[in-house]
Nucleic acid binder design. Sequence first.
RNA 1: GCCCGCAUCGUCUAGCGGUCAGGACACCACCCUUUCAAGGUGGUAACCGGGGUUCGACUCCCCGUGCGGGUACCA
Length: 519
Amino acid sequence: MDHRRGVAAGQLPGNGDLSGRPAPLSPDSPESLLDLVALPGSRRLRFAPSPTGQLHIGNVRTALLSYCLTGNEGRFLVRIEDTDRERYRPEAVPENLATLAWLGLAWDEGPDIGGPCDPYIESERLHYYRAAADRLLDVGAAYPCFCSRERLEELRAAQRAAGLPTRYDGRCRTMPQAESQAAIAGGADHVVRLRMPPGQSRWEDLVLGPQEFQNEEIDDQILIKSDGFPTYHLAQVVDDHLMGITHVVRGVEWVPSTPKHLAVYAALGWEAPALAHVPLVLGPDHKKLAKRHGAMAVSEYREMGYLPEALANFLAFLGWSPGTEEEIFSLAELRSRMSFERLQSSPAIFDQPRLDYLNGVWIRRLAVSDLAKRLAEFLPQATSEQLTEIAAMVQERIRRLDEVPALLEFAFNEPSPTVELLRGQLTPEAARQFLKLADPLLDGDLEELMERLKEAEAGSLPEDAKQAKQRFKECMQVLRVAITGQRVSPPLPESISLIGREAAHRRIAMAIEQLAQTA
RNA sequence: GCCCGCAUCGUCUAGCGGUCAGGACACCACCCUUUCAAGGUGGUAACCGGGGUUCGACUCCCCGUGCGGGUACCA
């Protein structure tokens, strides 16, 4: 039952001819290409990115949802939807796959690893779409259309001007077959259009509930473009059927074209998969998430130091919740817990502060050694020993990995604080005196450094407890700035150990000198 | 314009006729503390409006409003 090989193999036309002209089909029944041999018993969901650029947050959320809703028993597949030759960018295929892999969305079948429904790249499946189109043409569910783009544009402009819905006017809909055959034989440019049947289209959407459209309001969609490539509307239906897809998860922007897809399934005699249209992700201004809202590409989030664990956790909760008060979920937990019933039908806003919070949570959950590895790309100059030391000292205080370089600037570059920064609340002279006092104390056990400093600093002046405490804090800040050049840094003992005692002594000496000049 | 969808704190959400409308982020205060964090405690903050249905509506229905999506030889 694992061999749900839905298609007859070895029928690729013209050795992968991708030039745009579909190769002629073998004379024996092209329809055999479209017979799915065995239907799968468990769930099969797919993610079908269009390789026109980087995967963005919205895309990847759909991928995540599909992956999670596949469940532990099902199969998750990736298919490359490269039917748009104008926007196609070949490098986007490996990029997109790498992004999915980074997020941890492992696929069971896909363009790189193959599978029972090979190939998983639509441009290599042209013969299937052609066969499907021929069948649709045969049964009268589709028709050739010879209208030029110019005519279509004029038509739309006129309709818009008249305040009418912009739709194809059906000029070629009733062309006698003999006439159209002759035109095609004569080499006339044409497309294949779906003949939208009368009546209504209905389906029970897994997220939105019952849906109904009047078919007369739906346009006669182009299924095969004049370059011979299918549009999404055909390719997606054919492949989902051939690949045994059981559930389609996609954004709500596809709702209005679903009746077209349903019509194709019906005309081909196929059963449509279950449909789940998930709400969009919006920017803080409640508009569809777009470039102007900042980072869009998932790769940018990686560069900003977000963990894939946190991003997945965050994205999953944009439209889903477990119904309990739990909120930290690993990808594996999400996959075993997510269900269609609990998907939200209202759009969600991408709230970066919440992502930051979750990222902090996930950073703190990491083993120190793991954090050290992930920090490597943010601190290329650090050795692996330093990385481990750094990981331990920053783990509790960062929300994003990219905060680390600034926090540890002092470890890789000599600081040069101003006198103002150096002395803080103290007079230059008092600051200098304290540094002189503190300097030799660095040489003992660093773990007890704070105790020694406290002891040494105390008793210099008779004060009440509160004042003494405050004074000590100010002294510590002077020492911190002398050593790190920053008012905010990891704890002093760790900071010193990171740069080494000699460097610490040297920096203190320089600070003392600097303070002496102004004193 | 036409078609479709959505509507609980600022944000993510719980709620599926009777709750002091719960949690989390963010924010504020306090505690802890060598800074920053982390952690702890507490606080401010929501059912879009109007009609129904019902003994009773955040919850069900209708209308309005707002927001979003679609309206390509793009996906």
